[in-house]
Design a protein around this nucleic acid. Structure first.
Lengths: 152, 152
DNA sequence: GAGGCTGGATTTGGAAGGCGAACCCATGCA
DNA sequence: TGCATGGGTTCGCCTTCCAAATCCAGCCTC
């Protein structure tokens, strides 16, 4: 149980979580990022997979490019016109832990079937992998043992 | 670089990330969960910290209660009326890794100041903590070594 | 060259939700 | 009784979402 506080240690306007939420905290953006994380790049592929209205998709892709999470590149297949594709940048790809953590939260709390539709393993050891808190020397820390530190 | 794919390995409708996004993937809900994570519980505290219009706040709190992420309880101070408070449930609190991962993403990519406003340490060793992928035997796995496994 | 297809982008009008202001009602105290 | 507090609701305006329609450019075929 989290102790009562009348307000957060840092006001939302100064919190990087709140800034991130302003950037990606809408449903379509999150779904687009998810598809991008699994390799989807083309406008019509995003569109057919997600069912996003085209105005929305166009606008969100544009915003994600402006904010540096996606890069817009042109590619061209033989005999076809040049088309854009949208590829995650390092900045965008760095959201992978967030999206996977959210996937695993959903696995646990939203879906009571035995095995989740998508899970993640270590490529080398084949062991299942979960998101966790880790110290710099590699030790896992339970969530309840976390302590908040404020900037001086 | 993520290899091109025309569609995700699992369609969004069957993906627990997409289900989670339907539940919490809006700006106000995420900000409310953030404040709740830091201990805010009362309607007027959420309201004054976040500046949420009261209709929105009331509706979102109600939805989060219905979905089991917050519990609505009544408390009463001496000489005051009974008031509701909204406390994270286990289900809600289990979103902590997601929100902290997003905070740390924001620290790195949205804020160029040296030290983030909020950081996290291990209560015992005082060491800084970050979100990571970990195998069941406790070894950290770099993001690039993750492999996707689909349900049979 | 014309026509058709593909594929991103834009326009349009209605629906839905956000938002600020006002209002409501219940509780407790002076 | 009147006032303050505090959660909730209503209302009208504004913004965004959404589906449908339209536009435009590149490429191929006839």
């Amino acid at each position: 149980m989290i102790p009562l506080s009348r307000k957060s240690p840092v006001p939302p306007a100064q919190c990087n979580l709140a800034k991130a939420v302003d950037l990606i905290g809408d449903r379509w953006t999150l779904l687009i990022l998810r598809s991008a994380l699994y390799g989807v790049r083309r406008f019509d592929d995003f569109q057919s997979e997600l069912g996003t209205p085209r105005t929305i998709l166009s606008g969100r892709l544009k915003n994600l490019v402006e904010q540096g999470l996606l890069a817009r590149r042109t590619y061209k297949s033989e005999g076809r016109r040049a088309r854009p594709e949208y590829v995650l940048t390092d900045k965008g790809e760095a959201l992978r832990p967030v999206l996977i953590a959210l996937t695993q939260w959903g696995d646990h709390w939203l879906d009571c079937d035995g095995q989740p539709p998508i899970s993640f393993t270590d490529m080398q050891s084949r062991q299942a992998v979960h998101t966790a808190f880790v110290t710099d020397d590699g030790r896992e820390v339970p969530s309840e043992n976390l302590r908040i530190v404020l900037r001086r």
